[in-house]
Nucleic acid binder design. Structure first.
Lengths: 236, 236
DNA sequence: GGTGAAGGTGTACACCGTACACTCGGATGC
DNA sequence: GCATCCGAGTGTACGGTGTACACCTTCACC
């Protein structure tokens, strides 16, 4: 009956820590995520976290595991091409849910089981599709970070946490100035916004992503069907 | 005649700061590069740097400018394909000289003139090659970070600053353990090392890079020759 | 009911980026 | 020749970071 009125203070464990870290990063961004801030969120003193993760690096690795596990499992009913495509797009959806994930994924170098599982099953999709192990190897390299649902680009629209409100007048003046020095950049960015009156609307990210993905998938298929072999590789 | 014997203590300027920062990063790595450490290197107090760069972010932007300027200018005598290829491979050489550059390039979001110049001239190569502005736009996206001489991959061989010395016995045992859980990963990594007795020699980075690059360039060419247009794009 | 281990605490350290007020040397104007 | 001014370099300080280490508290089990 003398039930305490404060929160029952359930014990910490590794999973609670990781889940809280992911949610907190979703909310306040990865830069603001510090051990102290996370501890505060969990109503605990900073050093308490170190009973559950060895250090911040391991915390980040754990967070990667959490989000990689969110990627849909392969769909066995589809052909390799559709299956890979769907899976990669699922990874992309996960990345859109966790905007911080890209930079963390990029910075990681430790190969955790969850991550290896993801690679393992992706490789399996190519092998099942009739790709040689050799070609599959190169294909995985070619996919690169696209396998994780993103590609690195400078000036990505989602890079800045908050774009300043567009000042149309200033933007037009800036475009004018750019026209001389960067005519080509201007030319291709005009195309990107031809159907929209607002200047610099940005690209259709999903379209761009799928454009490159399909280009690669088609290329892979052509190589496979041509019986590609790396025997012709120049031994540098 | 009363020439001072200590170093003449030549004045700092923005360029000296940036050059020193690049060299220091080459030597001690980007993580160890702090304003304090850089100041020490220049024989100056930390705050002195702030007379020449606004903050650390601007320092990093300046460092990017320095290394991007190292990329070879386009060769006008070649066709678009060979010219783009050569240029991208030159960017890659620059990146190999500055191992820290990849992560810095990835983290930057500010578009400095030097960086814009590089993009401008790259875009120009496609336009000169008969690509429509529309297609060029998507092509630049598809190139992604490959334009900068790298692609993001997990477990890149160059990721760790110092791989621990290989313990062959432990490695074999680990492979044994992996064989059950990750047969596919094992399968494609065996291919990568078939001509080498040492386990886990790693991939031929240059080959992998060019494999994907050429796959894309060939794909671009096919699209151009087919008169590709994005009019068929599904309006989401 | 005692005990041992695991979980949570408190304090402390070294390092980081940088705000702010200062000193001092050298160019400029009279 | 002297005053002035300005900007490069200095010194101190603050609030933040990750985390080592010693401590205490709680709880399961014999």
């Amino acid at each position: 009956m003398a039930q305490v009125l404060v929160a029952p203070r359930l014990r910490l464990n590794r999973d609670r820590v990781l889940q809280a870290a992911v949610q907190l990063a979703d909310r306040i961004g990865i830069d603001a995520l510090s051990m102290r801030r996370l501890a505060e969120e969990l109503g605990v003193v900073p050093m308490a976290l170190y009973k559950h993760v060895a250090n911040k690096d391991e915390l980040l690795d754990g967070m990667v595991d959490v989000i990689v596990a969110e990627i849909d499992p392969p769909n066995g009913d589809l052909g390799w091409k559709a299956a890979v495509r769907l899976r990669v797009l699922s990874a992309r959806q996960m990345l859109l849910r966790h905007p911080w994930a890209r930079s963390v994924l990029e910075s990681r170098t430790r190969e955790t089981p969850t991550v290896l599982d993801y690679m393992e099953s992706t490789i399996g999709m190519f092998l099942a599709g009739g790709f040689s192990a050799d070609l599959t190897h190169h294909v995985m390299h070619a996919l690169g970070s696209r396998m994780w649902g993103f590609t690195q680009e400078l000036f990505d629209a989602s890079a800045g946490p908050d774009r300043p409100p567009v000042d149309i007048a200033a933007q037009v003046a800036q475009l004018q100035a750019m026209a001389e020095r960067y005519p080509h950049i201007l030319q291709i960015s005009e195309v990107a916004t031809h159907d929209d009156s607002v200047v610099a609307r940005g690209c259709d990210d999903r379209f761009e992503f799928e454009f490159a993905l399909d280009l690669l998938l088609d290329g892979f298929e052509r190589l496979r069907d041509a019986g590609w072999s790396s025997d012709a590789r120049p031994t540098a």
